[in-house]
Amino acid sequence: MKQVAMVCAGLSLLAVAGTAQAIEGGMDVGKDYTHLRFGLGTDTPGFALSGDWLRSDHDGNVESLGLNYNVGVGSFMLSPGAKVMSTNPKDSKDGYAVAIGGGVTVPVTNMFNAYGEYYWSPDAFSAHIDNYQEASAGVSFRPISLVDVRVGYKYMALNGKDGRKDNVVADGPYVGASVHF
């Protein structure tokens, strides 16, 4: 049933994000985790669809589909949104969560941007976890329009429910790159 719900949510998000033009795909690597991501319309105003898979060497993994609405405010890009995710902690039950949050991108120069994002899911929006938190911040360098190199810090935690262990899926610096089409 969980897979059916994730597929239905993903197809719904894809239908809403149909106006997205740009495609992005990338990978970030931290000391104990790997993060793969893709996106449609993540760099332009309007609806944006994103997908993530983050695997921890010690605490499980999390897959998500997200829908944001990018708003240009001066030179800033604000991206409020929501994510539907499947949680697979190593020492607890698999579950799901719906997180709300968003991000901001601030251009520093033509090639450098500072960015940050935060998502949170309370107990009422999740199953088998008390709450979910995700935060990241960093700097990106885009030497050409197709390539983006990132350096930052990521924190992702699944707080256990009913006495189950907390799982910190990511907590540390990362380097990454992405390609934009």
Rank of each mutant, 00 (worst) to 15 (best):
E63K: 13
N70H: 10
D171R: 04
I129R: 01
V71M: 08
V62M: 09
L158S: 03
T34A: 13
L65Q: 12
G138R: 08
A48E: 06
Y96A: 13
C8D: 02
P122I: 07
H58G: 02
G18P: 09
K154P: 01
N167Y: 01
G66R: 12
V62I: 05
D94A: 12
V71A: 00
G101I: 07
V104K: 00
M85Y: 02
F38Q: 10
A127K: 12
D57N: 14
H180P: 01
I144T: 12
G103C: 01
G18Y: 08
F38A: 14
K83P: 00
L78S: 03
A82F: 03
Y96P: 05
P45F: 07
D43A: 11
M156E: 14
K2M: 14
V16W: 15
I100V: 15
H128F: 14
Y115N: 02
Q21K: 15
V149P: 01
L14M: 13
A17R: 12
V71H: 00
D123E: 13
M1Q: 11
M1F: 08
Q3R: 13
A20D: 07
K165M: 10
Y96K: 12
W53T: 00
V106N: 02
V73N: 05
P80A: 03
G160H: 06
A17S: 15
R37G: 01
A82V: 09
G160Y: 05
F141Y: 15
A20T: 08
W120S: 09
S126N: 00
L146F: 11
V139T: 06
Y96T: 09
D130M: 02
V149N: 04
G66P: 09
V16Q: 15
P122D: 12
I129G: 00
F125L: 11
F47C: 09
L13Y: 10
Y153S: 05
S178P: 08
G46I: 10
N159C: 04
S136E: 15
